[in-house]
């Protein structure tokens, strides 16, 4: 995989493993939402997918709302909890969201690197790199069915 220490300076000290082939079909936000069909982004020209009922800004609040829509709520830490799936939202220095990762059952995290690969990693191996650092952790109960999937 073509990344340098400058991109992810801690990737050589902790697990940082490629787990898929390259695809542009979905991005990290979609992957965190367990959707492999769309590229999620709140762009102003409405070319990319973003739920209509969620504010369309590149702010942490809008990203939190996106995950709240599918059952997540803000939590304090990244500690693995059997009954919960967690996501981490990354922001840059200007507090603009850059990335999202989802926790796996084994405690590692899974991420999609832009239009590149899926990887399994620890929070440390991705920290202080291309995406900045984790701003918010959110969690939802496993086997959760979002409201909009339920039959009326």
């Amino acid at each position: 995989m073509n990344y340098s220490d400058a991109d992810f300076p801690n990737s050589s000290f902790d697990p940082f493993l490629v787990t898929s082939s390259q695809t542009t079909r979905y991005n990290c936000i979609a992957w965190a939402c367990e959707d492999t069909e769309k590229w999620y982004w709140p762009d102003k020209k409405h070319m990319y997918y973003w739920p209509e009922e969620i504010c369309r800004d590149e702010t942490i609040e809008c990203f939190i709302d996106l995950f709240k829509r599918i059952g997540y709520r803000i939590c304090k830490n990244d500690r693995k909890e059997f009954w919960y799936t967690k996501v981490a939202i990354y922001c840059d220095d200007k507090k603009i969201p850059t990335h999202a990762a989802r926790q796996l059952r084994n405690g590692y995290w899974t991420s999609k690197l832009g239009r590149n690969y899926d990887i399994s990693h620890t929070l440390y191996s991705m920290s202080d790199g291309y995406y900045g650092n984790v701003e918010v952790f959110m969690k939802r109960r496993r086997f959760f069915t979002p409201k909009y999937f339920k039959k009326k």
């Binding site: 762009d43 990335h99 690197l113 590149n116 995406y131």
Partner: peptide
């Protein structure tokens, strides 16, 4: 932009 998800 190889790792970017941000369309902007």
């Amino acid at each position: 932009t190889k790792f970017s998800s941000n369309i902007s």
